[in-house]
Design a protein around this nucleic acid. Structure first.
Length: 350
DNA sequence: AAGGCGGGGGC
DNA sequence: GCCCCAGCCTT
């Protein structure tokens, strides 16, 4: 049987020529810029990435400068963007590119795939967009568009289904405008073939070929696995104050918020009395313990419910912390959004 | 195959 | 609240 997808190529390319958004990484699509943009865009909306992209490129304009950047600069450039292992892997990969590829990002997806932080999607995206290789890049947008166009009710959360979609696309990829085709599929998914809201089938260049549209089944597709529940974690956070500065500690390099800085905190919801005990254990002598408004932060898999205490101290007795003033907090240390309420409280009151 | 890993925007 | 985003890595 003939591939139903053959017919989408020309209409999509044509539509994209008229409707592509102007995006920073599209202006000058060098391999490095495309690469950085694709890493930033993993599970992250275009709107969120925009302010980070140009700043990152302007501070670290080359693969070489990225390879040599200090960790704190990297994390500060990524602060608030989330999934911080992305930027660590980006630098690891930059070092591999410097060492093994003479500073030139490879163009074949099989080689890109070996670099830290580059999976099937990103390998295809960089190869096609930056180098014109006729290989697919299947992200959430593409899965949705293809599932709807072909009326496919497979579970797109399954690896095998993603591979199957990629294989179908591989066969119809245009040799001439591969990068444009990659971007046109994603652009359609992002701006027309919408996930949550009602898709704009009236504006869609594929509506006449779309199985879901002909059945009125747009909202039922794609099919995905149900997501599991978040765990709630109680934490008690100490805003330790000394001479107008706040105590910070560095989180472990791996895992949640790896390598970022945080206000000292412990698991559990502690009363002021329990907090006093805990602070003694941490080697801190509190002058007083003042409750400040509690806060909540939602990660994809955990929910932090935070009990916050303001704790002035006369003398820093432990070396477990660094002491940061407003300026250092703003310019030097990368603080996760989870501590945003505490941070704002400090900035407001000091 | 499943779970860990951020944060925010839109309904 | 809930969804899901130009996903990848480890287990």
């Amino acid at each position: 049987m003939e591939n139903q997808l053959t017919k989408i190529v020309q209409p999509l390319l044509c539509w994209y020529a008229e409707n592509a958004r102007a995006l920073p990484w599209r202006d000058d699509p060098t391999p490095y810029r495309v690469w950085v943009s694709e890493i930033m865009l993993q599970q992250t909306r275009v709107k969120a990435v925009k302010p980070y992209f140009e700043r990152f490129l302007s501070e670290l304009p080359t693969i070489s400068s990225l390879a040599d950047a200090p960790e704190e600069q990297l994390l500060k450039l990524w602060e608030g963007l989330g999934y911080y292992s992305r930027v660590r892997n980006l630098q690891k990969a930059a070092r591999v590119v410097m060492k093994n590829y003479g500073g030139v990002l490879p163009k074949k997806p099989e080689e890109l795939l070996r670099l830290p932080g580059i999976g099937e999607y990103t390998a295809g995206a960089v190869a096609s967009i930056a180098y014109g290789e006729p290989v697919p890049a299947v992200d959430g947008n593409v899965l949705r568009v293809i599932a709807r166009v072909t009326g496919d009710r497979s579970n797109i959360s399954e690896t095998a289904v993603k591979r199957e979609f990629a294989d179908r696309l591989r066969k119809i990829y245009p040799k001439k405008q591969a990068g444009t085709f990659t971007q046109s599929l994603m652009e359609l998914g992002a701006t027309v073939c919408l996930p949550n809201a009602e898709p704009k089938c009236g504006e869609c260049p594929l509506s006449s070929l779309c199985t879901a549209h002909s059945l009125g089944a747009q909202r039922e597709l794609p099919i995905k696995a149900a997501k599991k529940q978040r765990k709630i974690e109680e934490r008690t956070v100490f805003l330790l104050l000394h001479e107008g500065r706040a105590a910070l500690q560095k989180r472990p390099g791996k895992g949640l918020l790896g390598g970022l800085w945080e206000f000292p905190n412990v698991l559990g919801k502690l009363s002021p009395q329990e907090a006093a005990e805990q602070l003694k254990i941490l080697g801190v002598t509190a002058e007083k313990i003042v409750p400040i408004p509690p806060s909540k932060h939602i990660f994809s898999h955990i929910e932090w419910h935070m009990t916050n205490y303001l704790v002035p101290i006369a003398l820093p007795e432990t070396q477990a912390f660094v002491w940061a003033g407003q300026r250092e907090l703003a310019e030097t240390y990368s603080i996760p959004a989870a501590f945003g309420k505490c941070l704002a409280y400090f900035m407001r009151t000091q």
